[in-house]
Nucleic acid binder design. Structure first.
Length: 480
RNA sequence: GGGAGCAUAGCUCAGCUGGCUAGAGCAGCUGACUCUUAAUCAGCGGGUCGGGGGUUCGAAUCCCCCUGCUCCCA
């Protein structure tokens, strides 16, 4: 970031203040500082006349002759300190003059409650821990500029405590998911992020180069094919919670790197995954949000069990008419166009039907809904249903109109898998993961598998409208 | 990829039917004040109006291009 000339004026003033403090014997960038606790813990266990030693960033300062009130911010929490000339002594009081908003201080003293009822630390002594050379955003309105909030998230976190609280929720949601999964006996593993071929999903990968091997490599688009190798190797319950990378567009629900938990259970199927995700999400919501009613207004969702389960076919029949699957293709095309859908002339029935699902149905599914028995052409890596080869034994969990978690009865037939890979590769043998096929030929147990989009789940649980509000440093175009 | 909107002081925002030296609040500076809390009171400084080009006697304001962000659509 370049500094405009006027920004330097603020900086010059602060450098001068730093100089004065230094001349008075203060160290502008101090050492480790032993606190009796955080501000949050101190406020929670507050008792008058208790001694306390706290640290934080000065975010307000009200000076009145021979006494000063200031707020120390520690994470999202603030505590007022009272600096009185009689108490800290003449010199320390004079030196406080050169403290700027944004400086980190330590303060030692006794807790009390002011006349107006605010919990406050009466300082007997203060310590300079770090001098800030640049000013903070506005104290009342916070930092509003959306672009600055993302580009300089640290300022957003300082100025907008609710942002910090949201990310604290994110941390707890992920921690509780791990607790839930390990509680069910799932082992957390790590598989390659740098892969010689980017398999396990249909997406454009980021390409990179491993110089030492003289080989082109890819950032993974999914961990799936490695986790399945672990099923072959005898792991029966595994998960990996980490980043995937997809070289595709940015919008309010897509970031090129996003967090996903993939879960596999040997001898399970998509129904065991269904029960697992419902239990995980409701438990996490209850623990972290304290309720199954999450979000507010347009973002409100009711997570109460049992969640709706409905077949893709039934959703289509309800939307497109009970006779939909019996209509001649041309009649069906016309009906879709009557729904104001843009249907190219070369689309087959499956494509038209899916357009109806995506454009008209999916966004209406607000509370959690398992959409089951999807057409086989939509999901090439899943097992067909035993009673109907045209549909696969999968679910798509939709919440707030978006796909949150797909779950499969995994394909473990190596011959069928090879056929589908060859179909996808269209004759390009280099695109087929032979090593994975070899693994399958050694025998993979039947298994249920599922991926939960963590960022989207966190959007649902926190009521966030954009993925950029739940990712600390969302991807933006570089700017000088 | 297409359309619409936004960009003014460190921050939050006015100003935009072209016309005094571009304003306010916060932050900053000087001074007063020993329970304030968006502290108060008196005074002061602070601008490449995102960047470039054009129209005009005159542009923050109108037109074109570029950059970034936001929203809608694909």
């Amino acid at each position: 970031m370049e500094h405009g000339p006027k920004e330097n004026e603020f900086r010059q003033q602060r450098l001068a203040n730093l100089q004065k403090l230094q001349e008075m014997g203060y160290t502008p960038f101090g050492q480790a500082f032993a606190r009796t606790g955080t501000v949050a813990a101190t406020l929670a266990g507050f008792a008058e006349h208790q001694p306390a030693t706290l640290a934080g960033r000065v975010v307000s300062k009200r000076q009145m002759g021979k006494s000063i009130f200031a707020h120390l911010q520690d994470g999202p929490d603030r505590l007022q300190i009272y600096v009185k000339k009689d108490l800290v002594g003449e010199q320390a009081f004079a030196a406080f003059e050169w403290i700027d908003l944004g400086d980190h201080l330590g303060a030692e003293g006794e807790l009390f409650v002011t006349k107006t009822g605010e919990k406050t630390l009466k300082a007997a002594k203060w310590t300079l821990l770090s001098k800030a050379l640049l000013p903070l955003p506005e104290k009342w309105h916070g930092l509003q500029d959306v672009e600055l909030r993302y580009r300089q998230r640290y300022l957003d976190l300082i100025a907008n405590p609710e942002v910090r609280r949201l990310f604290d929720q994110r941390t707890r949601i992920i921690a509780e998911l791990r607790v839930g999964l390990t509680g069910h006996g799932f082992a957390e593993v790590e598989t390659p992020m740098i892969q010689p071929m980017a398999g396990g999903a249909a997406a454009n990968p980021f390409k990179t180069r491993y110089e030492a091997l003289g080989a082109d490599m890819f950032l993974r688009i999914a961990p799936e094919l490695y986790l399945k190798r672990l099923l072959v190797g005898g792991y029966d319950k595994v998960f990996e919670l980490n980043r995937n990378f997809r070289n595709e567009g940015l919008d309010r629900s897509h970031n090129p790197e996003f967090t996903m938990v993939e879960i596999y259970e040997a001898y399970g199927d998509c129904r065991s995954m269904q029960r697992l995700v419902e239990e995980l999400v409701t438990t996490v919501a209850q623990k972290v949000c304290g309720s199954l009613q999450v979000g507010a207004g347009d973002m409100a969702v009711n997570l109460t069990s049992p969640w709706r389960v409905v077949t893709y076919r039934d959703l289509i029949l309800a939307q497109a008419g009970a006779d939909w699957y019996d209509l001649p293709l041309e009649t069906a095309r016309q009906r879709a166009r009557d729904f104001k859908l843009d249907i190219p002339a070369d689309w087959d029935r499956g494509a038209i039907t899916h357009e109806i699902y995506e454009k008209l149905i999916e966004k209406t599914l607000i509370n959690p809904t398992f959409v089951t028995r999807l057409p086989v052409e939509l999901v090439p890596l899943a097992k067909a249903c035993a009673d109907d080869p045209t549909v696969v034994d999968v679910f798509e969990l939709v919440i707030r109109g978006r796909e949150i978690a797909p779950g499969y009865s995994e394909l473990n037939n190596p011959i069928e898998q090879r056929r589908r890979f060859e179909e996808q590769a269209k004759g390009d043998a280099a695109k087929i993961d032979q090593d994975f096929l070899d693994a399958l030929e050694h025998g993979m147990p039947p298994a249920g598998g599922m991926g939960i989009g963590i960022d989207r789940l966190i959007m649902v649980l926190t009521g966030a409208e954009s993925i950029r509000d739940v990712v600390l440093f969302p991807q933006l175009k570089p700017r000088g």
